[in-house]
């Protein structure tokens, strides 16, 4: 399958007192057509900045793409003009955000906002655009779509507003949907509804989805592959099942173990990662995770490990072999990766 998006050595910075603070520092990954990939990370990991860079929205918040390529269907988005990006955004790539209220204009009706989005990219009569808007609201599961078209954002609940945002994002049938923490601000039952909707849409539209989340549970339910980010760098990329069962990066492992699971031993001491995420202006010289890593050696503190490809996955760690050896005795001693077809 071909890649729809290829990000190569992306560096995005925010202007600080002494030059740029690199929120994303040399990030490379690819998304295949129709694939759902999740970027998982804690706050300050650079996951949102990565998505904002792909959309070229960082420049509206004092940030700048300092280096790297963002190849979308073979064209480098990093080189596009503002005007070209405006045309592309919302047509071939769409984005939905955590808080839809800030993304919707409070003084226009829902119908107006969806039809505007359609009319911006397609020259069709207004009436037709409004009819299409109604169709979209039905698609995203809003009840009484006709009434909704005439309502203003404040008249809708958080879950409904997120559905409207999804409707706008889908208006032009994009090939890539970027969803930045789309359910974080929602209640659990509404989160379940929105995730269900995204699954349905993915199936019907065969659209690639890049989902940014801090919730590993959401990532597992939604994605084929997971990218783990930490302090502006990618730590690990692998298929969801692999990464959950056999994390190759100590950070991934520690992160997974620190989440209480629904079938874990209650009341047991949770594994936790000592310390906290480093801030951008005092990043460690070597591996970004080294100061908190149980496996860290002198090399880790001095040299940044590259993101290396191995057996269908990518890991940035000097001690991958140690991590791999943890799983050697699983599955009756079968070495990891032995059952993969080549």
């Amino acid at each position: 399958m071909t890649n729809i998006l290829e990000v190569n050595e992306l560096v995005t910075g925010y202007r600080g007192k002494n030059g740029y603070l690199k929120a994303v520092d040399g990030v490379s990954f690819a998304i295949k057509e129709g694939e759902t990939i999740c970027i998982v990370g804690e706050s300050g990991s650079g996951k949102s900045v990565t998505s904002m860079s792909v959309m070229r929205l960082v420049e509206y918040e004092n940030g700048k793409i300092l280096a790297g390529e963002i190849n979308f269907k073979g064209e480098d988005l990093a080189k596009k003009t503002t005007e070209e990006m405006r045309k592309l955004r919302g047509s071939e790539i769409s984005m939905i955000f955590q808080e839809p209220l800030t993304a919707l204009n409070p003084v226009f009706t829902i119908g107006k906002q969806i039809s505007e989005a359609i009319l911006f990219h397609q020259k069709i009569p207004k009436k037709l655009a409004m009819a299409r808007a109604e169709e979209l609201l039905t698609l995203v599961g809003l009840s009484e779509p006709k009434t909704r078209l005439k309502q203003f954002p404040h008249e809708l609940s958080g879950g409904m507003r997120q559905r409207v945002m999804i409707a706008i994002a889908l208006a032009t049938e994009p090939d890539l949907l970027i969803a930045d923490e789309p359910t974080t601000a929602l209640d659990v039952t509404i989160e379940a509804q929105i995730l269900e909707l995204l699954r349905k849409i993915r199936q019907e539209k065969n659209m690639a989805i890049m989902l940014i989340t801090h919730d590993i549970g959401v990532a597992v339910e939604m994605s084929q592959r997971i990218i783990i980010m930490y302090a502006g760098k990618i730590m690990e990329i692998a298929e969801t099942n692999d990464i959950m069962k056999r994390p190759y990066h100590p950070y991934t492992k520690a992160l997974l173990e620190s989440v209480p699971t629904m079938d874990g031993e209650r009341g047991s001491l949770l594994k936790s990662i000592k310390g906290s995420i480093p801030s951008l202006n005092e990043l460690p010289a070597g591996c970004r995770f080294a100061p908190r890593c149980p496996l860290a050696t002198e090399q880790c503190h001095q040299e940044q490990p590259p993101l290396e490809t191995m057996q269908n996955r990518q890991v940035a760690c000097w001690h991958v072999d140690k991590m791999k050896s943890l799983y050697e005795h699983e599955k009756g001693g079968e070495p990891v990766g032995a059952n993969e077809s080549h």
């Binding site: 989160e191 379940a192 590993i216 339910e221 969801t240």
Partner: peptide, 16 residues
């Protein structure tokens, strides 16, 4: 519907 990090968790969702 709790998103569960266990990829083997059997999902029999009832979405309200």
């Amino acid at each position: 519907t709790v998103p569960d990090p266990n990829p083997d968790a059997r999902k029999n969702r009832i979405v309200l």
